[in-house]
Nucleic acid binder design. Structure first.
Length: 747
RNA sequence: GCCGGGGUGGCGGAACUGGCAGACGCUCGGGACUUAAAAUCCCGUGCCCGCGAGGGCGUCCGGGUUCGAUUCCCGGCCCCGGCACCA
């Protein structure tokens, strides 16, 4: 791969190369992990996790795509495991809010991140379990079901409570004597999870727990049900059922004949009578049947009711995120060993920083059993406790490889540092990354993890950088036969073949030219030859003109008396520099930059043809057929060709270097730098102004660019073509805008 | 369902701030050069009518604003991407 990158001619600072699988790098993953452990940003948690049965490993939520493993595409299942988790939610608010301060990022990515973080403002409210209700004995006195809601204003309409199948109370009740049916239903719902839920609609189902809770606002008893559509991992795993104002609850209540009580009147809003309900009303309205809050608009009620709940100690306002902490434990061999040991006496003990790195052993058995390959290497597992020096076992899971990529850009600034992940001053000098490009598929993976890690380093005092990437360009993927290229699909193309035939420069130029970089492209090399032709045209042009325009002592065109053709050529050159400069830098429209250069070359060929003393490229060995005598022509050609060569140098550096030398320059082209343009020249001289008559372009007049408006009006009316169209008609209006636009309205 | 981005020739795609729609490249056709071919150079290539000069239509559809709309506004259709029973 490295050889291929070099053959394609990618500019890369190889002296800063790092490999994240080497201890010189991953020891800093371990270092950072220990720092996060100290700050309670890393913790251990037993929970249901995404499990890929093919890779035999855990996956983070971000790594599950449409219910399948991001890496191999196998359907993901659920497992309960104890895992190391990084507390990304600590930064949820900051990650969300500062998304507004990333003007250099595409909206698409920012939106995806916002949705992924998923902030919801609402309230947690406790529904006490009704004393004396069935099953009350299994829970401590005073127990309550806490629900999360964004619509506390509808709480008077809460006629039942729904629990997720994974809710702890459901677990408790399923173990009660005689709860066989209960347990069976619960297990069935839990099994439904993932695949069923992801691949399509699953039927809303539930069962009555037989328990009763109390609506803390109405004080009415409400039944407690388990429902398969309530998510265990979001909010509190329990919701209040308000069938009148939530479509899901409405369907559920209809199916199981639970009471529907309307508490927000839509009458004012939708003009319908309140009793005609065929679906839930989640729109605006005024509260009805809501005790002391009746008559309030729903918005106001929300604030008042939250305050009331807080005052009475039955709930509080809260912010809920969809984002969850990042589980990083992986049961893979390739990954950073997690630097902790487990001691029978001392429990979990972090490996001291000064004994890092914990080396990944060289040999591993790949058992395919679903535990970490490291667990089978006794020399690795068995160690001594850093605290008591007694026998201890090492953690055998490794870190998600996304840990490696979450801060490597800082390491590039200081790749050889043996004392620290990087010297803060060095990253202070280089960072943040000015321009970052990658696939959009990283929008909620790498790009959110990196923003998280940058903040961790910042809070450790290592940097002052919050946002690691100032400008982000999400480049499109290159597809073949409508799919991402991959060896297993057999739809790859080999750049080496194309380099063999047309050269790396033509290939690179073509890739840049074929579409804007953000766009996904379907690969075809049909146009590759065209890029090669363009480079050949540039070569021939310079080759054949070098004798005439190369060398010292040729003055620039400033101050020379230029004829029309020379002025036009010069204008084109300056205008091209202006365009290409802008295309490369703020816009990164590489395709139009290349087309601008092609236009300039076309124009140069035409100009040479018009001077009738040069026959560029008619034969490979053609040379000037006459002697160029006009100083203006020579000067303009020199200026234009040199500008061209300087502008193609980013695209084809070696050829540009040679051409530059052919033009008689001793110093390299790098020293010559980027050509400058004169705005006055680029926009000077004559312009063609379309003349519209009743909205149709009927004529064009050629005028000096700085023609005054009233003069332009005069010229337009005086034009013969225009006069023809005005015959026998009355001119009602002549419009001149921006000093150059003419439109004539006639009756 | 929600959010984001789109819809322009045979194809990839241009069009900057509302001002010649289709730059540039590919494809295809023609010419020059050549004994011939390749290469190269030049010309043409949105659709329709016309021998021609020329004329008409044309940027998903329907309206609107404007002297003028691919561009701005309203409504609709379609496509792509992301999220999705998130309470």
């Amino acid at each position: 791969m490295k050889g291929q990158l070099q053959r394609i001619g990618i500019s890369y600072a190889w002296e800063r190369e790092i490999a994240t699988c080497l201890p010189e790098y991953y020891r800093w993953n371990q270092w950072l992990f220990l720092k996060m452990l100290e700050r309670d940003l890393a913790y251990r948690k037993r929970s249901n996790v995404n499990w890929c049965p093919s890779c035999n490993t855990v996956l983070a939520n971000e790594q599950v795509v449409d219910g399948a493993c991001w890496r191999c595409g196998t359907a993901v299942t659920t497992r309960e495991l104890e895992q190391w988790v990084l507390r990304i939610t600590h930064y949820a608010d900051e990650l969300l809010e500062s998304a507004a301060d990333l003007p250099g990022w595409p909206d698409k990515v920012l939106t995806m991140q916002r949705n992924w973080i998923g902030r919801s403002e609402g309230a947690r409210v406790r529904f006490p379990l009704a004393e004396g209700s069935t099953g009350f004995d299994e829970v401590p006195p005073g127990s309550a079901i806490e629900v999360f809601t964004t619509r506390i204003d509808t709480i008077y309409g809460a006629t039942f409570v729904l629990l997720a199948p994974e809710h702890p109370l459901v677990q408790v009740w399923s173990e009660a004597p005689g709860a066989e049916d209960f347990r069976r239903n619960m297990q069935r719902f839990q099994a439904q999870d993932r695949s069923g839920r992801m691949t399509g609609e699953i039927e809303k189902e539930g069962f009555d727990t037989g328990r009763t809770a109390t609506n803390p606002f109405t004080n009415a008893p409400v039944p407690v049900w388990v429902a398969n559509f309530v998510l265990g991992e979001y909010g509190t795993g329990a919701v209040m059922g308000v069938p009148a104002h939530d479509q899901r609850d409405f369907e559920f209540a209809t199916k199981y004949h639970l009471p529907i009580v309307r508490v927000v009147s839509a009458a004012a809003a939708d003009g319908k009578a309140d009793d005609e309900m065929s679906e839930a009303w989640d729109g605006p309205g005024v509260l009805v049947a809501s005790g002391e809050f009746t008559g309030l608009p729903a918005g106001d009620a929300m604030a008042r009711m939250s305050e009331a709940a807080e005052a009475r100690g039955i709930g509080e306002r809260t912010v809920q995120y969809r984002l969850k902490d990042w589980g990083i434990s992986r049961q893979r061999y390739w990954g950073t060993p997690i630097p902790v040991v487990y001691c029978d006496k001392c429990g979990m003990v972090p490996v001291p920083s000064d004994s890092l790195p914990v080396l990944l052993p060289k040999i591993a058995e790949f058992s395919g059993r679903g535990d970490s390959p490291l667990a089978q290497i006794p020399e690795f597992v068995n160690t001594t406790c850093p605290d008591c020096e007694g026998p201890a076992r090492r953690e055998t899971d490794t870190m998600d490889t996304f840990v490696d990529s979450s801060w490597y850009f800082f390491r590039f600034c200081d790749p050889k540092n043996a004392e620290l992940p990087f010297e803060p001053d060095t990253v202070g000098y280089w960072g943040p990354v000015d321009f970052y490009s990658g696939g959009v598929e990283h929008a909620i993976l790498h790009l959110i993890y990196s923003r998280f890690f940058a903040r961790v380093f910042r809070d450790l005092g290592m940097t002052t950088i919050s946002e690691p990437f100032t400008r982000l360009l999400t480049q499109g993927m290159v597809l073949k036969d409508g799919q991402v290229m991959s060896k297993s699909k057999g739809n790859v193309v080999d750049p080496d073949d194309m380099i063999q035939q047309f050269g790396a420069d033509a290939l690179r130029l073509y890739v840049m030219f074929v579409a804007p970089p953000e766009k996904e492209i379907e690969w075809t090399d049909a146009g590759l030859e065209g890029s090669w032709r363009f480079l050949s045209r540039v070569w021939r042009l310079v080759d054949q003109l070098s004798e005439t325009i190369g060398g010292e002592g040729i003055p620039g065109p400033d101050g020379l008396d230029l004829n029309d053709a020379e002025r036009a050529m010069r204008r084109k050159t300056h205008d091209t520099i202006r365009r290409v400069t802008a295309d490369l830098d703020p816009r990164v429209h590489l395709n139009t930059a290349v087309s601008g250069l092609m236009e300039l070359v076309n124009e140069l060929y035409a100009f040479c043809g018009r001077t009738e003393c040069l026959r560029i490229g008619q034969h490979p060995d053609a040379s000037p057929v006459g002697t160029l005598e006009r100083a203006g022509t020579i000067a303009v050609l020199k200026e234009s060709v040199e500008a061209l060569v300087r502008m193609i140098s980013p695209f084809t550096p070696h050829m540009a270097e040679e051409l530059w030398e052919m033009l008689g320059h001793k110093e390299g082209i790098t020293a010559a730098g980027w050509p400058e343009f004169s705005d006055a020249v680029a926009k000077s001289e004559e312009i063609v102004v379309p003349v519209q008559i009743n909205g149709k372009v009927r004529a064009r007049i050629t005028v000096a660019a700085d023609t005054a408006e009233d003069r332009l009006r005069e010229l337009a009316l005086a034009d013969a073509q225009v006069a023809k169209h005005l015959e026998g008609k009355t001119v009602k209006k002549v419009v001149v805008a921006a000093g150059r636009l003419v439109s004539i309205v006639v009756s």
